[in-house]
Design a protein around this nucleic acid. Structure first.
Lengths: 235, 235
DNA sequence: CGATTAATTGATACTTCTCAAATCCTGTGG
DNA sequence: CCACAGGATTTGAGAAGTATCAATTAATCG
């Protein structure tokens, strides 16, 4: 995908995973006309905390992290994104500045859809709006889970749980490694702890044969034990 | 307000604070017809974690806490509610079970509006839906803040911040005390710490003259210092 | 007023953080 | 293809922050 050739939304396979799955053919045409397909390199920022968004990105391929700067400028990773997700909608709909830095973890192809198209769609297409609401409400529930876990679980438990979440979010490679590459530091910024602490617990999990490494790739060997370690009951 | 007399939504002053502020007169009539006004005593539960909601509550008067049970059955308070808020909408819209126990902190008057009325309203009233989306997206942003704080701030910082948040959420009484009564244990369950730890830091804040107590009521004496203590920059 | 429940204080143990130092990678230029 | 620079990872030791347990005092409600 490049800037000259704008693939139509009709033919987009990723669309069926997204909030645009059921919008009408007409509407789809309108979106197709006004959107712009963009490419982001690994490490590039799609949106920056504090600005106001003028449109949303519909993620076609690639992986993202959503993070906020906490006290002392430390990164806190809030959640992840992948193909089929839309980003930036929260800011537009709450009429607040973007609340997270959204950064590409891999190369990312995404379509940019201007704000007014989306707002217009909301007033006209009930299914689409419902779909958006469902998404937002689902994420709200997830956020509640995260809050409870952060407040109550130990770092060791949280790390175990995060590994399981990453695996189920991003799946595994052919060789069975979790299909996302995070630095130890980033892993620490998800869990909310120090890098060294992540490393210590990871090597503990490794001695216990719950996981194994290959570079920074991680393979989960024993999901049950890991879920146990993380006090994850709904696994 | 009691069960015999169902006050019309038209005349409800609280409505103007809520997502129903701008719905049409016709729609309002429909809601008025199908709603039921209920009273909850302090401590009573409006919704319970895990069930599926069949309607939403529109809070007319009173205060609520939203909590989840974490590991070992410990309560984690996620957020608070008050007049003008609607509760239960998340579950209905994400088609997931209720994700929190919603409990009255004071006596509460609330109107129960059946699920199908709300879903119908969503397909027909764009303003209402947008209003709901705005609410959900706003709360999503708040959740992100909470996550960052929990992950990065110390218990001491979080407690200081929570006091400020409680004051700005619930206001103060004539005498200047934060207008909500929480047990020390509940305060601990907001902050995500042990009751004893809350007590220790509270008495520290008291010796520092940042706060003063009267029973379990808390009065903030020095907002600036407290914001400092809590590393709250946007106060 | 008595019985619970809540709040407080103290002592100790444990988890996690921080700082320092060493080793390991990775990509780059020669 | 190799060596090197700079970042990433790992390990250790000691400090700091919180949790836990136990005991005491205060507040509340019937």
């Amino acid at each position: 995908m490049n800037k000259n050739q704008q693939p139509a939304c009709h033919n987009c396979e990723t669309r069926h995973l997204s909030v645009f799955a059921n919008v009408s053919s007409d509407t789809l045409d309108k979106i197709s006309e006004s959107k712009r397909c963009l490419h982001f390199k690994k490490g590039q920022e799609l949106l920056h905390e504090g600005i106001s968004a003028n449109g949303i990105y519909c993620i076609h391929t690639g992986k993202l992290k959503f993070s906020r700067l906490g006290t002392e400028g430390k990164e806190q990773i809030i959640r992840f994104g992948k193909a089929g997700d839309i980003v930036g909608y929260r800011s537009i709909l709450s009429q607040e500045p973007v609340s997270a830095n959204i950064v590409a973890l891999t190369d990312v192809d995404a379509c940019y859809i201007p704000k007014d198209i989306i707002l217009n769609l909301i007033t006209k297409d009930g299914d689409f709006t419902k779909s958006l609401l469902t998404t937002a409400c689902h994420e709200l529930g997830e956020a509640g889970k995260i809050i409870t876990n952060l407040a109550q679980k130990t770092v060791r438990e949280r790390l175990a749980e995060v590994l399981l979440i990453l695996e189920s979010t991003f799946g595994v490679t052919e060789e069975g490694y979790i299909d996302v590459t995070l630095k130890r530091e980033e892993l620490a910024n998800v869990v909310g702890t120090a890098t060294e602490t992540v490393i210590r617990f990871l090597s503990e999990f490794k001695s216990d044969k719950y996981v194994e490494f290959k570079g920074s790739k991680i393979k989960i060997l024993n999901r049950t034990k890991l879920a146990d370690t993380g006090s994850v009951y709904d696994y």
